[in-house]
Design a protein around this nucleic acid. Structure first.
Lengths: 349, 349
DNA sequence: TTGTACGCGTTATCAT
DNA sequence: ATGATAACGCGTACAA
């Protein structure tokens, strides 16, 4: 029941193994005829080279990894698809690895790179700062994406790439828009402020906006989600909003750090017998497709997912092939004004 | 820049490579002291054995694959997580592979099994019948899940597993419920009837229900989604519903073969200035979390995702370890009566 | 252009 | 209990 190997093919064709290998890898110095003969047998047999043996031998193992923190966020699925497809066009194998919220994505990468001889890594989600010492140990080029950007870092000497929107600025933009609508008491549903996450950047953007408009910061209006398996979930948005609504602080708008949280928050508002946006405006962040189907359509910051994925994966591959250096790319995001926000009405008690 | 290998560790510890290997794999015949000494060095070095070399040599490669058709359906993310976690507890590596709608999942499996020496495969999504000849070529135990069940097959001699709900019966149950509410003109938004997919089973359940209640079948009320990249998407639900609404046939309810389609369909109804369920009832299938946050909450058939994932992966592993035979498991589904369905009002023209 | 032989890092078999 | 060594399947330098 042993799988057929390159030897079997060689024997079958009456040639040496190296000739088969050459046929397999489009090597130049091989007689087109023998090549065709061999490929025919390969097709008939359905032979597929053993990946382990290949990677073991090859100096360039032709595989990259996508390390995703937060699979259940639909935000990532498109990006994953685009990146996988691109890798395939480069004849690379993609290893897709999920990371639980309590796992350290850098440790996972460290392990994976050794296990699988990766040629490159994309981190999706997770924290935006990491232990540099550990990062240095990753023996392959890597890029971060959708984990936030820090504009000030752009000039620093960089040895890995980052591609993201300017979360702090975009977040500030969104909250400023709410303020412009007359909202003064704006609640925030946030991922949690302990970690250096995008959540924190968006939180800072929120504070920036308040400060710029001379609105005092009220920490009672900041609600962290449950330290759950998955911070960005509808359930967390729901629970956090419920706590806010049952609290004593009054507010006329909620800024949720992700659309998926906003959807949960809307549900909590409805369950309270209130209307969005009439009683409370609810805005999100990310621009997931669902936001356009939800009722009301979600006002949000739309991240350019497709473009980020494309630019990111192209960048990684040009770094791998030595064609380009690492870069720090800040993508533009778009403020989508839709139905879940409106002018502030009287703040509820 | 070469990675550290088992040899380096051996040299460092002043022992042979086989001793290191024994320490690494919890072999019985090794002195606990030397074992501890070696493990200490391994921890300090951060050494990780090369997976390719391992799989190459090992008879039991300790890896399984999850082959997923339709990543963007949030329905699958929970299942994937549960299965990955379970595999990890068995110290197995999980290879997650997405399949595009136009790819053949069996071909992918065939290739993967050879490339990676898989010990088992889970198919999520995709068609429910396949070329048996090809299936026989898959050199590893495999199970299908969420691709529909055919009750009549239960007695057949089986050499692979299937775990799913009885899509036809559940679908019939749901449509019968609508009929019970007084609906006579019930539209169907379906995946497409060319392929032997769950879509087809649900379509048959729809027809069963009509027939049982003596309602004539009207093919004008059956709307196939666009042959898109991804059949189950909100966009497809939206477009299909729009075509129905702009058509000449009248109806008071729409049965969508997936919740994600139903959400799109609701949006189309709203855009037309109509109300769900007052003017048109919209029901879905799957029981995704979003259905409970949407407004109105979706009436649907809830598949027991967690249980299916758990039972499925456990079954696969017990087949792998020879502890059990392949089985054909039909899971119970639940009819969730929520807000998107109500008694039929006058059919719109 | 083609074939032979070696080595990639690991595990398993056999001595010791 | 431990160490030397032969595989595993493939790519490639080198010889032919």
């Amino acid at each position: 029941m042993a799988e057929t190997t390159i030897k079997d093919i060689a024997k079958e064709c009456g040639v040496g193994v190296s000739t088969v290998s050459r046929a397999l890898n489009n090597h130049p110095d091989i007689n087109p005829e023998t090549r065709e003969k061999i490929m025919k047998v390969i097709r008939e047999t359905g032979f597929v080279p053993n990946n382990s043996a290949r990677n073991l031998k090859r100096s360039d193992a032709r595989s990259i990894a996508l390390i995703v923190k937060g699979i259940s966020n639909p935000f990532f699925s498109d990006m994953i698809r685009i990146m996988e497809n691109y890798a395939q066009t480069q004849r690379y194998t993609t290893i897709l690895r999920h990371v639980e919220p309590d796992e350290d994505e850098v440790n996972v990468a460290l392990q994976l790179v050794k296990e699988c001889r990766l040629r490159g890594i994309v981190f999706l989600g997770g924290n935006f700062t990491h232990d540099n010492k550990k990062l240095k140990l990753i023996n392959a080029p890597f890029i971060f994406t959708t984990i936030g950007s820090i504009a000030g870092d752009a000039h620093k000497k960089i040895w890995y790439s980052n591609i993201a929107v300017d979360d702090r600025a975009e977040s500030c933009k969104l909250v400023s828009y709410l303020i412009g609508l007359g909202h003064r008491n704006i609640a925030l549903i946030t991922e949690g402020l302990g970690e250096p996450s995008v959540g924190k950047l968006r939180y800072e953007g929120y504070r920036d906006a308040l400060e710029q408009h001379g609105i005092p910061f009220d920490e009672k209006l900041v609600m962290e989600v449950d330290q759950d398996r998955e911070p960005y979930s509808m359930k967390n948005g729901y629970n956090a909003a419920k706590r806010l609504l049952n609290g004593e602080s009054k507010f006329t708008a909620i800024f949720c750090e992700a659309d998926i949280l906003a959807i949960g928050a809307c549900r909590a508002v409805f369950d309270k017998g209130l209307k969005v946006p009439h009683d409370i405006s609810v805005v999100g962040y990310d621009g997931i497709e669902m936001g356009n189907y939800y009722r009301p359509r979600l006002t949000t910051i739309k991240q350019p997912v497709e473009e980020m994925a494309e630019e990111g994966i192209e960048l990684l591959f040009s770094v791998i092939s030595g064609k380009s250096e690492h870069r720090n790319i800040i993508m533009p995001a778009e403020l989508l004004l839709r139905e879940s926000s409106s002018e502030a009405n009287e703040a509820r008690e």
